[in-house]
């Protein structure tokens, strides 16, 4: 939980959170309130169903962003979610509710570095998931075309993983011009 996110009290509970609690109960690992919205942490098994529910039943139809965080340097975060190294984050938006934003976080373990793709819910998730795969190495199952999007095709490693060296592994000094497809 970030500093900007504050605890939810029973009086001010947003409607969307009530609905999510009712439907997903145990799958919700954590809840918090953020600016104009709520943050929920949900386990991986139910994440797709929760996102589908938010889109089709609760009008959170606009997928703002898909990204991830590598928590390997944050012991406090690791301990909370059974040492899941990564956290995949979905930002949703609605035009109809007062609680207009919802952030869905999904812990993902390093030894099982995959999560179900949401490209069949939102077409726009295609490139966002490709970027997350490129930067963090998270495999989105069911994605139609999971290729790198930012780094060159023959790049090795995933640069936003915390153990990737900032200055790289010598890619920037030497590469083969003939091999590159321009």
């Amino acid at each position: 939980m970030n500093e900007e996110e504050k605890e939810i009290t029973e009086e001010t509970i947003p409607r969307v959170l009530e609905q999510l609690r009712e439907k997903f109960g145990d799958a919700l690992l954590e809840e918090a309130e953020s600016q104009n919205g709520v943050v929920v942490v949900v386990n991986k098994e139910k994440s797709y169903l929760l996102l589908e529910y938010l889109k089709t039943e609760l009008a959170y139809s606009f997928l703002v962003d898909v990204t991830a965080v590598d928590n390997s340097n944050l012991e406090s975060e690791l301990m909370k979610y059974d040492y899941a190294r990564f956290m995949v984050i979905y930002q949703l938006y609605t035009f109809e509710e007062e609680t207009s934003r919802i952030r869905v976080k999904v812990p993902v373990h390093e030894k099982e570095l995959k999560i179900q793709s949401v490209t069949d819910l939102w077409k726009g998730a295609n490139w966002l998931e490709r970027e997350t795969y490129d930067m963090f190495g998270i495999d989105f199952e069911g994605h139609p075309d999971l290729r790198r999007i930012l780094m060159p095709d023959d790049f090795e490693g995933h640069p936003l993983q915390k153990d990737y060296p900032l200055r790289g592994r010598g890619e920037r000094e030497s590469f083969n011009f003939e091999k590159q497809n321009v």
């Binding site: 780094m151 640069p159 990737y164 060296p165 900032l166 200055r167 790289g168 592994r169 890619e171 920037r172 000094e173 011009f177």
Partner: peptide, 13 residues
């Protein structure tokens, strides 16, 4: 930008 992705001077190439 002393990072993995940036050419440190185009005069290398």
């Amino acid at each position: 930008f002393d990072t993995y992705t940036l050419i440190q001077g185009v005069d290398q190439f």
